[in-house]
Simulated assay, not measured.
Amino acid sequence: MCFEDSNQQVRKESTPMQLRSLVPLVIVTSSILSACVSVQTTQPGAIGLDRTQRMSTLVSADELNQGAVTAYAQVIGEANKEGTLNTNAAMTKRVKAIANRIIPTVGVFREDAKSWDWQVNVINSDQLNAWAMPGGKIAFYSGIIEKLQLTDAEIAAIMGHEISHALREHSRERASEEANKSLVLGILSQATGAGATTQALADLVYKTTLGLPNSRLHETESDRMGVELMARAGYDPRAAIAVWEKMAKLTGGSSSPEFLSTHPSNDTRIKDLTNYAAKVMPLYEAAKKS
């Protein structure tokens, strides 16, 4: 993470020996502080998202996007090798058609994303999962569509949510935390060749997209951005509420208490989505008429 102040570590009553023992901490902390910048990855959109983000300069958006290209190719290549890639032509066509409606709306949050190399694939798996890597690399698992019996609008809700993670560069925020904990990317860039660095970035992208849970803040931001994207694409934003109602029913309300989880509880999520779906209903109504 990007620390705000390192001076609090040094107290006036510290002895010379104690001060000397703090030198390594101060050096590392200073390095981390100098490697952090405030950014705003997206425009606020109609929902008014305006949180300032803190990113590490040790991992740039371009580097992470390149890592995503490698990581995505590896995931898709493995699925292809196992015979699980796009095995249901009708489902794949359906998911890609929904993506083709949502992707043109991303300019409301960031104009440059309209020119990303967007890729959409469906992996045959029982997992209740879908994700989007940096730079617009999307994967849906057949399990989430089949087990939840998703409508097109509900697929759009999930897709809008996952795309929002990519637009908001949540992976980069999480990668910044990982990088700053050990300064690992700075060490790698000096001690390894370009190929190894690219693979390290690919591993980091995979970890921060599939391997680590998103924070409550990131999940809430993506929920809110997602309903705006789907509404602008002409999908009823209230379908996002239905997704989590179905999820709660499928899990039998067995999700962990909210204070023990990095994700909002189903009840909290549904309440927030109900509020924000109402806010973007005019966008949906306008899209239906266009």
Rank of each mutant, 00 (worst) to 15 (best):
G234Y: 14
L250K: 15
T220R: 14
Y235C: 02
E228S: 12
P237S: 03
V227L: 11
L212F: 07
L212S: 14
D223Q: 09
E221A: 11
N214G: 10
R232V: 01
I241H: 06
G211W: 08
L229K: 10
Y235V: 00
G226L: 06
T208K: 13
T251L: 02
T208M: 12
G234Q: 09
E219I: 08
A231L: 08
Y206G: 00
P237F: 13
G252I: 04
P213S: 13
G226N: 10
A231K: 15
H218C: 00
E228Y: 14
K246S: 00
Y235H: 08
E228M: 06
R216Y: 05
P213C: 04
P237R: 15
E219D: 03
S215Y: 08
A239Y: 03
T220L: 07
S215G: 10
A239F: 07
K249A: 08
L217Q: 14
A248T: 14
S254D: 09
G253R: 06
T208L: 08
D223M: 11
R232Q: 10
M225W: 08
W244P: 02
R238Y: 13
T208F: 12
T251D: 01
T251N: 06
G234L: 09
S215H: 07
E228L: 10
G234P: 06
R238T: 09
M225C: 02
R232C: 00
S215E: 00
R224A: 02
T251Y: 03
N214H: 12
R216Q: 04
S255R: 10
S255E: 09
R238F: 13
L250T: 08
P213A: 04
K249I: 03
V227C: 11
D236R: 11
S254V: 00
P213T: 04
G253I: 02
E219K: 10
A231F: 08
D223T: 05
E219S: 02
G226M: 05
A233N: 12
D223H: 12
R224I: 10
L229M: 08
A242D: 08
K207M: 12
N214I: 03
S215T: 15
G234R: 15
P237G: 00
A239T: 04
K246V: 00
D236N: 12
M247T: 11
S254C: 03
P213K: 12
R238W: 09
T251Q: 03
G211M: 04
T220Q: 10
G253T: 05
I241F: 11
T209C: 06
R232W: 05
P213V: 04
E228A: 03
V243H: 11
E245H: 10
K207I: 04
L250P: 10
P213Y: 11
Y235N: 05
Y206R: 14
A240Y: 15
